[in-house]
């Protein structure tokens, strides 16, 4: 029996991965994601947890064909640089064809399986982004 993915780590990062929990610095006011032990901008340790908006704009994207092991089933992997308010995050884009991606398009967070540890190990769920669903005035 062997496991590639850390079980405690899966548990530790769920705030960031499930709910886009970020950190806001009370000293300089800047927000960073994922949360770090101190503010990367000013070094202050006076941080509070905030939740990033679940909708944002695609600032850049790439279609990864050189996929890492264990991800062939979802190749090519669509990767996005997403702006959520004042913060950028990198995450996979799902439910889209490469040809429909455009910078500037609206995207929304969904929960997906990011990785699963072979047949028997832990499953890591987390946020991915998809093109905003049409009928989109609903659901904000």
């Amino acid at each position: 029996m062997s496991m590639d993915l850390s079980v405690p780590e899966t548990w530790r990062v769920k705030g960031a991965l499930y709910r886009l929990e970020a950190a806001r610095c009370k000293a300089c006011g800047r927000i960073h994601y994922p949360p770090m032990p101190a503010c990367p901008y000013c070094g202050s340790r006076d941080l509070e947890r905030v939740t990033l908006p679940s909708e944002g704009v695609l600032e850049s994207y790439t279609v990864v064909y050189a996929v890492p092991e264990g991800s062939r089933h979802k190749a090519p992997v669509l990767l996005g640089l997403v702006r959520l308010g004042r913060v950028r995050v990198v995450a996979e884009i799902t439910d889209a064809d490469p040809s429909e991606l455009r910078t500037g398009m609206e995207v929304e967070a969904v929960l997906r399986r990011i990785r699963s540890d072979r047949e028997a190990g832990i499953i890591r769920y987390g946020v991915m982004f998809r093109p905003k669903l049409k009928g989109g005035s609903r659901g904000g």
């Binding site: 994922p34 979802k74 987390g126």
Partner: peptide
């Protein structure tokens, strides 16, 4: 921990 948890290659 988070960013490279995705299959960024």
């Amino acid at each position: 921990e988070v960013q490279a948890l995705y299959d960024i290659g």
